[in-house]
Amino acid sequence: MPAEQEPIKRVTTRSLQSMRDRDEAITMLTAYDFPTARILDEAGIDVLLVGDSLAMVVQGHDTTLPVTMDQMIYHAEMVGRAASRALVVVDLPFPEGQIEITRSIEASARVVKETGCHAVKLEGGAEQADRIEAIVTAGVPVMAHVGLRPQNIHVDGGYRLQRDTEKLVADAQAAQAAGAFAVLIECVPAAVAAAITEAVTVPTIGIGAGRSVSGQVLVTHDIVGLTSGYTPKFTRQFADLGSALGAAATGYRDEVRGGGFPSDAESF
């Protein structure tokens, strides 16, 4: 008889902490649909982020601001159903994390109740400490997000490198004290990210933050060549699915127009 396979171990907030404590790098990628999430989960990615970046890479908007809570729930439900190993984190979209705290609690509760996902991500640090604590107290794990905050784009006047070490360290420490299980650090100099990581004990996940963090996150569309236009310095393309998809579509078009598809073998 074949040997019994060990059950797949679910990544949890505790196992992420253990990874940080062992200095084992954490991997995180975005996912917005069932097939992509299943592939990433089977590839062993530790954390899947249903990011509000879907407003840009899926919906075609210029910022993350237009995506709604109902749309986030729709996409998160697909990802939550696909992931059998990864921890799945869902962004609280604008303005669910900016207005009254009770609304943030209700939005976070919707995530875990309606999608099967496990945690939410909330932009902000010290000024969001009360909100983070309230959501965690309500039973929903929170990943904090410091540095560049895309939902704050109009206040900041653009996507800018964040350099204020003292403020960013204070933000991360306040988020940890409020109960955040991890801190995402976006678009800061590597030395600043290292200072933040040194100042907290929870995992830090970097995007455009150098190597001195507990793990890395990127937008999946960026790493497989499915985005167009501006590509951030901090991303890397690991495959060119955009060109492959274009070639497949062109081949299909030519075969249909030339009468080569469907063939007799592909007909009933």
Rank of each mutant, 00 (worst) to 15 (best):
V67G: 10
T68V: 12
T68H: 08
M69S: 08
M69P: 10
M69G: 08
M69V: 13
D70A: 12
Q71K: 14
Q71M: 10
I73A: 08
I73V: 12
Y74T: 11
H75D: 05
A76Q: 04
A76D: 05
A76I: 02
E77D: 08
E77R: 15
E77M: 07
M78C: 12
M78N: 13
M78P: 07
M78G: 11
V79I: 14
V79W: 05
G80S: 10
G80A: 12
R81D: 14
A82E: 10
A82F: 14
A82G: 15
A83Y: 06
A83V: 07
A83M: 05
A83N: 07
S84E: 15
S84Y: 15
A86L: 05
A86R: 09
V88K: 03
V88S: 03
V88D: 02
V89P: 11
V89C: 05
V89R: 05
V90S: 15
V90K: 15
V90M: 12
D91C: 15
D91G: 13
L92T: 01
L92I: 01
L92S: 00
P93G: 03
P93L: 03
F94S: 08
F94V: 10
F94E: 05
P95A: 00
P95S: 00
E96S: 07
Q98R: 07
Q98M: 01
I99V: 11
I99Q: 10
E100T: 12
E100F: 03
E100C: 06
I101Y: 00
T102L: 02
T102I: 02
T102P: 00
T102D: 07
